[in-house]
Design a binder for these strands. Structure first.
Length: 646
RNA sequence: GCCACUGUGGCUCAGGGGUAGAGCAAUUCGCUCGUAAUGAAUAGGUCGAGGGUUCGAUUCCCUCCAGUGGCUCCA
């Protein structure tokens, strides 16, 4: 007998040599039905695992992330099996579980159409209905390669060959006639995957490299119950309604025009207003925190980028003006602000007394992104960023870094986005060093410092290998858009290499010259991207302080227009963004339109308001608030704006 | 850059080898109205651009441009 410590701390004695599945069955039939995999001593394992010593034993159902992964992974095998049924010549790539479902990559002559996906779904239904048991078996690397070659699966052979060197047996899963190279874990039977849906079919490079062949990837999702699947699909539909790219255009915040070009959005008056408000907010906040404002050129000679290294590491991404072969001088629009802002420091000799020097700039940048990269306001070719560089001594580095994190968090908190972000410590990839400048020692030092600082700050972060800038490690503050795609909103970077390249020195207290550390950072990130996230966060219904139009005044009849204009003038004197809807329309119609435009407050003025010198207030969110004096209204608006209430 | 899909009046969309429709929006007129849609009339489109096939193309084919979903990339 062996002892299992269950999740609730209780001890269960079972015979040695049983599989996890048999043990779970012994605990309860209901639990067995729901079980997707187990955790043995904290490690995710397959239900088929034989348990023959004391351990911590936790059953993972679909409610856990690990359970979902096993569930979706099994769904992906069902997909592959169905595709093989219908298209025997298709070659298999990989098919993992992802955040919200699964995918499988196939090498097929012609990419799948949506009609074909429906047929594949039907085939999958049969496999689920047959409730095929999944069996795991292991082969020696030689036997495994033989099997995969017999199956004529070149991509699997490639994967297997890589594992073969490790001296471990190769794991396979088999369901019916379908066998797949796979480490698991998996469900016990295909019958558990009751509700699934294939969502899309796209191209994807084999092993994620554009040098490789493009395979056809089918994305899908699956749930134990039909109702859960329906809920998920409903959430996807609702997400589409919040999509900034749709809503932002509908609300006339921005647009794009063919003849201007890709990734070059037009900010319409309302969108431009929000960005102006954000920009003033950020610039004022930075001024309070000791930043000095700079304004530097949008382009420079190639010489500047040659010093910074951008010319060699990033030329493809730059808009270069002129021909290097023919022209004496070649210019390029700036893809970043760094070397421009360094010139401020270099303007005269600096002493340690000048440090820390905090430079801030609302900086417009140009990046020649690949044509397939552009997306609404999230990924564009020209954007404006709350850029800044802090130049400091090694002793000041931690405090300055903390200040940057605090500023970023303060901005995010005010905007209401803090609850949605995650932190990523972006490191270099030593196996891919042509992407980076500097030595191993310099990278170890910079990354070591950042790690120490992050741990001191108590920030929970993930690690992104190969996500660093070419000159140093980053703390990236990440956010997911409405479709679940993650992007960097804010970045804070430590750089000890560019100061040296640019000959930036300060005279220390002992009279020696030293290279400072530089922190590259944004405080709100780029305004376009942040606006996109705000549109999605608030579904276009911005908090009062950000709303491009804050109040709509609605006179009921023409005879109320004079008094309405009077009220509007008083609001404008308070810097409230408002306008009068003086069209000869009914109140209900004007209110409907203001609601659809998501204007926070409507003021309705009729006979009684004119007589009593009051205003009837309607809130976008809470409806009719009744009649109040202008003073009460003014107080309410002022308070709400000053506190940046959400 | 790669794979796929899409492009018809300001917006949402229908149509389809014989040169175009609907609703909303807009404009004008009437109604002067109390918290999410007043009625009528009018105007508005080289069917994304260029080329080809055809007696004839918005419709079929090619190229380009732009949008969307992915992949790759993202200092």
């Amino acid at each position: 007998m062996i002892k299992l410590t269950l999740k609730d701390g209780s001890i269960r004695e079972v015979e040695s040599g049983l599989s996890a599945a048999e043990i779970v069955k012994g605990i309860g039939a209901g639990l067995y039905k729901a079980a997707c995999c187990v955790k043995i001593n904290g490690e995710v394992r397959d239900l088929r695992t034989i348990i023959n010593e004391d351990c911590e034993f936790e059953v993972m159902t679909f409610d856990s992330d690990e359970g979902k992964k096993a569930f979706w992974h099994t769904a992906s095998h069902i997909l592959a099996q169905a595709v093989k049924h219908l298209y025997p010549n298709v070659k298999l790539g990989i098919g993992p579980a992802i955040d919200n479902g699964f995918y499988y990559d196939f090498d097929t002559e012609n990419p799948f159409t949506m009609e074909e996906l429906a047929a594949i779904e039907n085939e999958m239904k049969k496999i689920v209905k047959d409730a095929m048991p999944l069996e795991q078996f292991e082969l020696s690397p030689e036997e495994a390669l033989k099997l995969l070659n017999e199956q004529n699966e070149p991509y699997k052979v490639e994967l297997c060959e890589e594992h073969a060197g490790k001296g471990e047996p190769i794991s396979f899963y088999k369901q019916g006639e379908f066998t797949d190279l796979c480490a698991g874990p998996h469900l016990m039977t295909t019958g558990t995957v009751k509700a699934f849906k294939l969502l899309s079919c796209t191209g994807a490079y084999w092993r994620g490299s554009e040098k490789n062949k493009m395979l056809s990837r089918i994305y899908g999702t699956a749930y134990p119950k039909v109702s859960q699947l329906e809920e998920h699909l409903k959430r996807l539909e609702e997400a589409k309604l919040r999509d900034h790219n749709k809503l932002g255009r509908e609300l006339e915040l921005f647009t794009t025009v063919d003849i201007i070009g890709q990734g070059l959005p037009i900010l319409l008056p309302k969108g431009a207003k929000i960005i102006q408000i954000l920009q003033r907010f950020v610039e004022d906040e930075e001024a309070k925190r000791g930043y000095l404002l700079t304004k530097t050129p949008l382009m420079a000679k190639s010489d500047l980028y040659k010093i910074s290294g951008h010319w060699f590491h990033y030329k493809e991404g730059m808009f270069v003006m002129g021909d290097e072969e023919k022209d004496d001088e070649v210019f390029a629009l700036r893809p970043m602000t760094c070397p421009f802002q360094y010139q401020v420091f270099l303007n005269r000799q600096r002493s340690y007394r000048d440090l820390p020097m905090r430079l801030g700039e609302t900086s417009t940048l140009f990046r020649n992104e690949d044509s397939g990269e552009m997306h609404g306001l999230i990924r564009v070719r020209q954007f404006t960023i709350s850029e800044g560089h802090l130049i400091c001594t090694p002793e000041q580095l931690e405090d300055e870094f903390r200040g940057c994190v605090e500023l970023a968090n303060y901005i995010l908190e005010t905007l209401g986005l803090l609850e949605d972000v995650t932190y990523r410590f972006s490191k270099w990839d030593p196996d891919n060093r042509e992407k980076y400048i500097g030595t191993d020692e310099q990278w170890d030092e910079a990354q070591g410092m950042m790690e120490k600082i992050l741990d001191h700050l108590g920030i929970k972060y993930s690690i992104g290998i190969g996500e660093a800038a070419f000159y140093g490690p980053k703390l990236d503050i990440q956010i997911k858009n409405v479709h679940g795609k993650e992007d960097t909103l804010i970045t804070i970077q430590i750089d000890q290499m560019l100061a040296e390249k640019f000959g930036m020195e300060y005279v220390d207290a002992d009279g020696t010259k030293k290279n400072p550390y530089i922190i590259h950072r944004t405080s709100l990130g780029c305004y376009e991207r942040t606006l996109a996230l705000l549109i999605e966060k608030y579904a276009g219904a911005f908090p009062l302080w950000l709303a491009p139009e804050q109040v709509k005044l609605i006179p009921i009849a023409d005879r109320h227009l004079d008094y309405t204009n009077e009220v509007a003038e008083k609001l404008k004197a308070m810097n409230i963004r408002c306008s009068v809807d003086d069209r000869a329309e009914k109140v209900g119609y004007k209110i409907r339109q203001a609601q659809l435009e998501k204007i926070p407050y409507m003021i309705i003025i009729g006979d009684s308001e004119v007589q009593e010198k009051t205003v009837a207030v309607r809130s976008r969110r809470d409806g009719d608030l009744g009649t109040m004096s202008f003073g009460e209204l003014a107080e309410r608006l002022t308070e709400e704006i000053a506190t940046k209430k959400r």
